[in-house]
């Protein structure tokens, strides 16, 4: 058991060393992009054109095919960032700090998408663009935490110090995630309760949630793709005076 742990640990450390990471990630980047586009286009085409209309909302419910995945991603990217922060603070792994920084703008984009599409969905169904209920307000706070992380990062010159500060802030900010998740259960909100829960079957017919599943996978792939692009930039930016970087780009 300990042996397995040590081998995996060594493997992770090796794969995370900047030159090696740069080499192996170049092979998967384009695949991630292609897969993301396939999943997203099939999922959205299916969701927008083939899936049946809703008995109550009609066609406008189709906004959920982008709203739900981006809300999921906005939260899970934050959890991913907090995990990177933990690794960065405890093990001082350089790559995890870069990962945290690279993920932040993507997570913020998804949270923004969730808020904007939710607002646009709210107007025709609820009758208002915005209401200060617990779900909407806590998601807005998440957007501000993302902005604070990015702001904090750019305000500290020393990159190692910046990594550490942002890592700790990401752990502090993690407390907002359970509030967002449970807000619809704890308080009376205008936002509806979750359609998908771990404990019961989804309250949505299969021909509607199958395309949604594809969209969620597509959004995760787009995140992985954008993350790899950002991370590769971050790696060569920080190591640009090193020989291995020069060898790749200066021939």
């Amino acid at each position: 058991m300990i042996r397995v742990w040590n081998v995996t640990k060594r493997w992770f450390i090796e794969m995370g060393s900047p030159p090696l990471f740069y080499r192996w990630s170049s092979k998967i980047t384009s695949w991630l992009g292609i897969l993301a586009i396939i999943f997203l286009s099939v999922g959205l085409f299916w969701g927008l054109l083939i899936a049946p209309t809703d008995y109550k909302q009609g066609d406008v419910y189709r906004i959920l095919y982008v709203h739900v995945p981006s809300a999921i991603l906005g939260q899970s990217i934050f959890m991913f960032m907090a995990a990177c922060g933990l690794i960065n603070v405890v093990w001082r792994a350089k790559i995890s700090g870069m990962m945290l920084k690279s993920a932040a703008p993507i997570g913020m984009s998804f949270t923004l998408i969730a808020l904007v599409t939710g607002s646009v969905w709210g107007k025709p169904t609820w009758g208002t663009w915005w209401v200060w209920d617990a779900r909407l307000t806590s998601t807005l706070i998440l957007l501000f935490i993302y902005a604070a992380l990015i702001g904090l990062y750019s305000s500290i010159e020393d990159k190692t110090k910046a990594d550490r500060a942002v890592s700790i802030l990401s752990i502090v900010g993690l407390a907002i995630i359970p509030v967002i998740k449970k807000s619809v259960d704890w308080w009376q909100t205008l936002h509806q309760p979750s359609t998908f829960t771990l404990t019961s079957s989804p309250s949505m017919s299969p021909e509607m949630y199958q395309p949604l599943l594809l969209c969620v996978i597509g959004f995760y792939l787009i995140f992985a793709f954008a993350l790899t692009l950002n991370l590769r930039n971050e790696v060569i930016d920080r190591e640009r005076s090193k020989n291995w970087v020069k060898q790749i780009f200066v021939n």
Partner: peptide, 18 residues
């Protein structure tokens, strides 16, 4: 002075609802 509709978490095609 303002009426907002709340909708539930159930989604289904009209035929299923019927």
């Amino acid at each position: 002075i303002e009426v907002l509709a709340k909708h539930d978490e159930n989604y289904m095609p009209p035929e299923v609802a019927k």
